[in-house]
Design a protein around this nucleic acid. Structure first.
Lengths: 143, 143
DNA sequence: ACTATATTTCGCGAGGAGACGAAATGAATT
DNA sequence: AATTCATTTCGTCTCCTCGCGAAATATAGT
C-alpha cells in the first residue's frame, strides 16, 4: 500500500487525538519507558495500553525495542514527526494532568521494574518504602 | 465547562484527523471560502460538510461570517492554531489530492457564486463555458 | 405574503474506536 | 520441562463518527 502524504498527516493527527496517547507521547519526551511503566501512569488495562501503543507505532510516532520480557518504547526516529510532537505539546506544559504524569514517571523510574510490572504501582511503592525503613533502622539513624 | 490545555490539544488534533477537514484547512489557507465552494470541492453532501465545518469551528481552527444567505469560512484567529495548521500541512504540498483541490478552488473562484451554489460545479462550469462562447462569436473574432 | 435557496439540524444506519477480561504468545527463571 | 510473567491478540460491548436524505431555519428576491 502506498500512502499519500495527506493520509500520513491524517494518521498522525488521529494518533495524537486521544488523551491517553498524547499523554504517552509527553512522557516519552523525557526518555524511553517500559510498557508496564506507561500502563502504571495511565492506569488503563494492559490490553488497552497495548492498543494505544500500536496506534502510535503505526503513525510512526513511537518505536519499540524488545529486551527480554520487557518492551521499551521511545519516540520515533522519523524527522517529520518531531514538529508534530513539539507543536502538539507546546501548549500543554501547564496542564495539571501532564504535570502529574511527568512527576509520576520520575517516581516510577526510581522503582525496580520487576516490582512495578508484577505488583503494580501502589504495591511497588509500598515495598520500596518499607525496604527503605528497614535500611534506616539498621543504620541506627534514630534521634 | 473548563477545558484543560490537554483537552484543547486533543480536540485540535482530532479535528485535523480527517481527510475532508484537513483538505478544507488547506483550501482556507488560500483565503476565505463560501460553504458551497467547499462543498463543491469535497463533493460531499451539504449536511456532511456542515458537520465537518462545525468540528473545525469547535476546535477553533476556523471562523465563520454570515453574509446574506452565504456563509464565509476562514481560518480561526487564535494564535495557537497557526503552528498546528502549518505543521499539519507542511508535508502535504506534493500530495495529489491537495494539489487538485487547490487548483479546483482557483477555478471555482472564477465562477459566479449564485451559479455554483444553485447548480453545482459541473453545471456552473458549463454555463460559463457557453457564455464565453457566445461572447466570442459576438466579438466576431473568427479566423 | 410567497417563493427560492443556502445552510443547518435531525434521524438513521453502517462502520470504527476504545474499553475490558480471557486466552494466546514469547521469553526468562526455576 | 514446568512455571512465571510481560505483553499482545481476540472477542465483546458500548459509544462515537461519518455518511446520507428529509425536514427545519434563515435570508433574498418577487
Amino acid at each position: 500500500m502506498n500512502y499519500s502524504s495527506l493520509d500520513t498527516a491524517v494518521a498522525i493527527a488521529r494518533a495524537l487525538g486521544h488523551p491517553a496517547r498524547l499523554r504517552t507521547i509527553a512522557m516519552l519526551r523525557r526518555g524511553e519507558l517500559c510498557v508496564c511503566q506507561i500502563t502504571a501512569v495511565l492506569t488503563l488495562a494492559p490490553s488497552t495500553v497495548s492498543a494505544h501503543l500500536r496506534e502510535l507505532r503505526r503513525a510512526g510516532l513511537t518505536a519499540e525495542r524488545k529486551e527480554g520480557r520487557w518492551v521499551w518504547v521511545g519516540l520515533g526516529v522519523g524527522t517529520e514527526i518531531r514538529p508534530w510532537i513539539d507543536n502538539a505539546l507546546a501548549g500543554t506544559s501547564g496542564d495539571e494532568q501532564m504535570q502529574a504524569d511527568l512527576a509520576l514517571v520520575e517516581e516510577i523510574r526510581g522503582l525496580p521494574l520487576e516490582d512495578l510490572c508484577r505488583l503494580g504501582y501502589e504495591a511497588a511503592r509500598e515495598k520500596r518504602r518499607s525496604k527503605v525503613d528497614t535500611a534506616r533502622s539498621k543504620e541506627g539513624d534514630r534521634p
